[in-house]
Design a protein around this nucleic acid. Sequence first.
DNA 1: TCTGGGGTCCTAGGACCC
DNA 2: TCTGGGGTCCTAGGACCC
Length: 352
Amino acid sequence: MSGVASARWVLHVDLDQFLAAAEMLRRPELRGRPVVVGGDGDPTKRGVVSTASYEARALGVGSGTPLRTAFKRIPDATFLPVDKEHYEAASAEVMAALRTVTDEVEVLGWDEAFLGIEVAPTDDPEAVAREVQRRVLAATHLHCSVGIGRNRLQAKIATSYGKPAGVYRITGDTWFAELGHLPPDAVWGIGAKTAAKLTELGITTVRQLADADVDVLATRFGPATGPWLQRLGAGRDGATIRTTPYVRRSIGHEVTFQHDLEDWADVVAQCRVLAQQVAAETRAGDRLCLRAVVKVRWKPFFTETHGRALPEPSDDPALIEAAALGALELFTDRRPVRLLGVRAELVRDDGS
DNA sequence: TCTGGGGTCCTAGGACCC
DNA sequence: TCTGGGGTCCTAGGACCC
């Protein structure tokens, strides 16, 4: 507003060991102990770790570790079920605290958010970051780490350097010094599969990705994804912070059975249950379903999906269930079923 | 004793139309 | 008899993230 230009920064806020920390809030005796949150809390069942406390991570258990493996590694850890409502409530308090700093908040799940801030020339973004940490801690007794960047990508990656409870800054000036020598999957948005394909092209570092020929990338990865990968390598993320309220594109439920379903009649019955659940939430959310998509994971971990459009956009449970059962009929295999899922694709604002 | 559940976005290929 | 392109819509699935 004044004649002196302020600088624009992006902060990425990430709660430290969020699910475990949220459990410690109501069970202080767990502090300092290995705590593993995942599944229904029974580490002898199928499932994976959602969040492990730092003490558990030091013993070789992290997000995505099978619960049974975690139990083998740390038999005396405290295993807790995922308590969605509890974390949603804690998350809402965190996000409210962030909104006392700025209205420009983009929420990414329970425990992360981007903040867009303008910083006066006399101040620095680290001061704002520490103020964010102070307000979150005061409001919720939870610690967070804050990454600072000129865009979301830089800020997001900076956070990992600041953990736990720290502040770290990455800009275009330091991007290559920090990341240039690392493999491409060190960058947010690039996973193992893409990294393997990049290796086939002779690209094994972030620096090489930034220097890569965009046309070569477009040929290999597609007209949108190719150029996007190059921008990621260069630390440029054009996406601005999205402050518009989140609108779901789909509502789904899936279940991994403790014992694979051998009888197809059981699969049909489970499909009905999931479809009714999804339909109820579609109606409760005052949305209309366009298509029902059914996912089957067969015995040994091979996944297939089929979908069926509804005769017309609808929230009628009977129509949604019929579409799901119709989609289920498109599966011709009859192997044991490990997982079954039903997802409703919803009509968007623009009608598509 | 392998490998959850909730999502989003993009691409490829076939159908169909002009 | 042989043979176009371009555009759009729909579906399946890949890839990634929290």
